[in-house]
Simulated assay, not measured.
Amino acid sequence: MSSARSSSGNRLTIDDWLQAGYAILAEEGIKTLKIDRLCTRLKVTKGSFYWHFDGMPSYRAALVQGWRDLRDEDRSQIETIGELPPRERLAQMMASLISPRHWTLERAMREWARTDETVAESVRAADRRVLAAVRTAFEDYGFDAEDAELRANATFAVGIGFLHLSGRTPNPRQAAQSERFLELMLAR
């Protein structure tokens, strides 16, 4: 077993390995996610990796599950803001999609989903929850079911578009653009 230490001074945890993988995914993409790259980033040997994982397939499965848990936590927060006025709900949901906490990781996972069905299903499941919450907010704002569905789909697509149009870091203009877009979607 490796004597590598996490930031808390203890031995590396599975979460330390996952965070390193998410950082590599977000910064460099799935093709660079290799055991050697992870070990270099964490300044440990391959033995430490194999202490926690059987190999890259089990590591990647842990990444997907960890991302799913993180997205479920975010989506649960979206669902708990249901008591806010619809416009505020929509603004918070749009802001969370491009928040600094997740914006690069969200992009990386969506790119990975293009080549991995397990990741794709995780992304689709998370997307369904968000779309339902966005649709509900539009209905609560007063749109009928058909208009709410159309507006929810358009809002979601624009949010994903903002992710893919952004550079390596969030653009401060995106918040203003998101706000302007929301005004357009709420216009009657």
Rank of each mutant, 00 (worst) to 15 (best):
E79H: 14
F49E: 01
L105N: 01
Y141C: 07
T80Y: 13
E111W: 07
A20T: 01
R107D: 04
G66H: 05
E106G: 12
E106S: 08
Q174V: 09
L105F: 00
E117P: 10
R68V: 15
P100T: 14
M109Y: 09
S48H: 04
R89S: 04
A108T: 01
E139P: 00
L165G: 09
A26W: 02
I14Q: 10
L90C: 07
D72E: 14
H102R: 15
M56T: 15
R124N: 15
K46I: 11
P85I: 11
I78T: 09
A126W: 03
V44E: 05
Y59V: 03
P172W: 04
F138D: 00
R87S: 04
A91V: 07
Q92L: 12
A187K: 14
L90P: 01
D74I: 11
R87F: 13
D72K: 05
E183F: 02
T80N: 12
R11Q: 11
F156M: 14
A61E: 15
L38M: 11
I98V: 15
A137V: 02
W67I: 09
M1W: 05
G66N: 09
D127R: 10
Q77C: 07
S48R: 01
S3W: 10
T115R: 10
P172N: 03
Q19I: 05
Y22I: 12
L18I: 09
E28L: 13
L182I: 11
D54K: 13
F138V: 01
F156C: 07
L63W: 00
R71W: 14
W51F: 15
H102C: 10
R5S: 12
A4P: 00
S166I: 08
E111H: 04
A91L: 09
S76L: 15
E146M: 10
D16R: 01
A108E: 01
A61M: 09
I24E: 00
D74Y: 10
I35T: 06
E88W: 04
L18N: 06
E83M: 11
M56G: 12
D140P: 03
Q177K: 13
G29F: 10
E79T: 09
W112R: 01
S122Q: 03
E79D: 15
R128T: 14
R124L: 13
R89K: 14
T104G: 07
G21A: 01
D127V: 10
L131H: 08
G161W: 04
R11A: 08
T118H: 07
L25R: 05
L182F: 04
V130A: 11
L84Y: 06
L186R: 00
G66P: 02
G161V: 02
F53Y: 13
L18D: 00
R129V: 02
M94L: 06
L186M: 10
R5A: 14
H52N: 14
M109Q: 01
